[in-house]
């Protein structure tokens, strides 16, 4: 009986101490952002590895998702004689939900796992210790620029995803299925609101950028410094990011509506 309580106690204590450490590290990392601005080179390099390298997969996926939305939306809407609303359906789905969410999921798989593996390997090969011994703070030199680059890149990637998706829907709906081009765009413009839809989508993707990049960076930084440790941390990054992104998406949508 007491063992049982002791076990619950042990689990909750270790959970909260982990959480506490993670929160402290997060604030230590964000506290470095101000100093980072004087060294834009570090951020540029990281935007390259998390942003530019994810661009291709984001654009290609966005295009396909837009085309699928066009196809599916058309087939449903045409039954109600409302195929002019195709643009609205495509744009709203992308801007509000699919853009930020799918981008975050792809980003977790492409950039997040790479970040975890990179930082985990730096830990396993004593590079992080080496930095510390050279009196260079790895939180400032390694974690902070990566987190900031992720926060900057995610909304840009999500915007590209949505924009390309809208054109993908246009290609299918207008060019192939014969929806009127004018009503595709005008209905879209009439029904998609800048604040309610576009800006909220951007807010979502900024939040996802913080969360996914942080998970990736933290998992790498706190992993067991062995090859198994790094590989299981990489898996955890992708799985946890996906779960938290989808959960948070529901929460944010509920808050913003």
């Amino acid at each position: 009986m007491f063992n049982w309580f002791a076990q619950i106690g042990h689990i909750s204590i270790s959970f909260f101490s982990r959480l506490g450490k993670e929160v402290i590290l997060f604030f230590q990392t964000t506290a470095c952002f101000a100093d980072l601005l004087s060294r834009p080179g570090l951020i540029i390099q990281q935007i390259f590895s998390v942003g530019v390298r994810s661009m291709l997969i984001i654009i290609v996926s966005g295009f396909f998702v837009g085309m699928v939305l066009g196809l599916q939306g058309y087939n449903t809407l045409v039954d109600f004689g409302a195929e002019e609303s195709l643009g609205v359906v495509v744009a709203l789905s992308l801007v509000r939900e699919l853009g930020p969410v799918v981008t975050a999921l792809l980003y977790a798989g492409r950039a997040g796992s790479a970040l975890t593996a990179e930082i985990g390997l730096m830990k396993a090969t004593e590079q992080l210790s080496g930095l510390e011994m050279m009196a260079v703070n790895p939180v400032e030199r390694i974690l902070a620029p990566r987190l900031l680059a992720g926060i900057i890149s995610m909304p840009l990637l999500a915007a590209m995803f949505s924009a390309v998706g809208v054109f993908g829907g246009y290609l299918i709906g207008v060019e192939m299925l014969g929806v009127d081009s004018g009503s595709y765009w005008s209905q879209m413009q009439a029904k998609v609101d800048y604040h309610q839809d576009v800006l909220n989508g951007v807010i979502k993707s900024v939040v996802f950028g913080i969360v996914v990049t942080w998970i990736a960076v933290y998992e790498g930084y706190s992993c067991t410094p062995t090859s198994e440790g790094v590989s299981s941390a990489t898996t955890r990054t992708v799985v946890n990011s996906a779960l938290i992104v989808l959960g948070l998406d529901f929460l944010l949508t509920a808050l913003m509506l």
Binding site: L121, M122, T125, E126, Q127, S129, G130, L131, E132, M133, M134, A135, V136
Partner: peptide
Amino acid sequence: AARKKMGMLFQTGALLTDMSVFDNIAFP
């Protein structure tokens, strides 16, 4: 400040893998 007066040679070398030998030495 104290660590700046110490150098440490790690078992694996712990060179930063994303930069050249020159940049590694120039790093500190």
